[in-house]
């Protein structure tokens, strides 16, 4: 048998690839096998293994959640309204179609993200400047709101009133910054 690549030298390296149950046999001579090897070795950021593993990881998922879902929903196939990617499609290629997919598939995604990222599922890094202000304002407002509840329980009404004013002020800022960001 001659090498598939060069058709000149006899094939010396034989291997069988099985990808998604599809079997391919490859016969190469030593030279070409080495060249192929060289090709593999430059596959720098090889998403290969990772994405394949990912699909496996995601495939396990539905079985865990079957009981939680209501049977009615199960029959519907989730589809992203923006890029029309379906969840089965995502499982197959391991990549999303657009930014909105994250929202569409959020319920399925959460446990997966946790597994991929060492238990984490909330971002704690860089925030784009244009929305940065909004996020920190919202966090501050949430903090103040719980302080307000606390002071009401403690019947410290004067302090509660000043916290309330502060919240109103921040909420005004927030709406202003959102309008600016939306332009």
């Amino acid at each position: 048998m001659n090498c598939q690549e060069c058709n000149q030298r006899p094939a010396a390296v034989h291997f069988t690839k099985i990808v998604n149950g599809e079997k391919t046999e490859v016969h190469l001579c030593e030279k070409c096998a080495q060249e192929k090897g060289e090709m593999f070795m430059f596959s720098g950021e090889s998403g290969f293994s990772f994405n394949n593993l990912l699909a496996g990881l995601l495939n396990i998922d539905p079985s865990f959640h079957k009981q939680e879902q209501n049977p009615f929903q199960q029959e519907e196939i989730l589809q992203c309204p923006h890029c029309s990617m379906t969840f089965p499609q995502f499982l197959k290629i391991g990549r999303f179609g657009c930014a909105h997919c994250y929202e569409t598939f959020q319920d399925q995604l959460k446990p997966v993200l946790r597994r991929l990222h060492g238990g984490n599922w909330t971002h704690s890094g860089k925030i784009p400047k244009r929305i940065g202000g909004g996020i920190s304002l919202r966090k501050k407002i949430d903090e103040l709101k719980s302080a307000l509840r606390e002071s009401v329980i403690q019947e410290e009404f004067e302090e509660a009133a000043s916290i309330r004013d502060e919240i109103r002020e921040l909420e005004r800022k927030l709406t202003a910054s959102q309008q600016e960001g939306g332009k």
Binding site: L54, F96, A99, W121, P128, K129
Partner: peptide, 30 residues
């Protein structure tokens, strides 16, 4: 990143961070 961000809007979610095509990169994308 800052230079580009000044001019364009990147896909970003408050909970999940920068949204990437593959969920293995979501968050910092780093």
């Amino acid at each position: 990143d800052d230079w580009l961000e000044n001019a364009v809007h990147f896909a970003f979610d408050e909970k999940l961070g920068y949204l990437t095509s593959c969920p293995t990169n979501v968050g910092t994308g780093l």
